[in-house]
């Protein structure tokens, strides 16, 4: 469990850094130019690591299913929804909802085991844990800022 926890923490820290770096790029160019650059860099890095750790095996895509090829569209959907959501609601409210929705969907996914992932049974304890995290997100995001700041 500790290994899974550490990996998740590492991923979260990198997401935070990446968001800041991407915002810096976005300040100077459009959001599609930024998205293209970000995904292009991600592809180059994945290809490099893949070649280092897997060698030629990287191109062995025997069990590929057709929908795997369009799964990259999800990332494009993320960018469109976040951009439009933030434009309409402002960053503070939009990101609060994004975070809560992320958690809610995670809970739903675990309890249903969709796409053949291992099912994690839904328990009352899990519900309480998630609700407390949601409370924390709301306090963190909406607490102690003047209403003016929240709106803009």
């Amino acid at each position: 469990m500790i290994q899974g926890l550490l990996l998740a923490l590492a991923a979260g820290s990198l997401v935070s850094l990446q968001n800041i770096f991407n915002t810096k790029v976005n300040e100077r160019t459009g959001s599609w130019a930024t998205t293209t650059l970000v995904l292009g860099m991600g592809f180059a890095a994945s290809l490099t690591f893949g070649l280092i750790f897997e060698g030629g095996q990287l191109f062995n895509l025997l069990n590929m299913k057709p929908w795997y090829w369009i799964s990259g569209a999800i990332g494009v959907g993320v960018v469109i929804c976040l951009t439009l959501g933030i434009r309409q609601l402002g960053p503070t409210y939009a990101i609060s909802i994004v975070l809560i929705s992320q958690l809610g969907c995670a809970l739903l996914w675990d309890s249903q085991g969709w796409l053949g992932l291992e099912k994690v049974p839904f328990t009352f304890q899990q519900l309480v844990g998630v609700l407390i995290i949601v409370g924390g997100i709301l306090v963190f995001k909406l607490g102690g800022r003047r209403p003016k700041e929240i709106k803009s």
């Binding site: 995904l39 795997y68 090829w69 990332g75």
Partner: peptide, 17 residues
């Protein structure tokens, strides 16, 4: 699960790009 983790990262980033 089907094609390996680095393969998955490479394919999804490429198609997204």
């Amino acid at each position: 699960q089907d094609i390996g983790t680095w393969q998955a990262a490479t394919v999804t980033q490429l198609t997204g790009f």
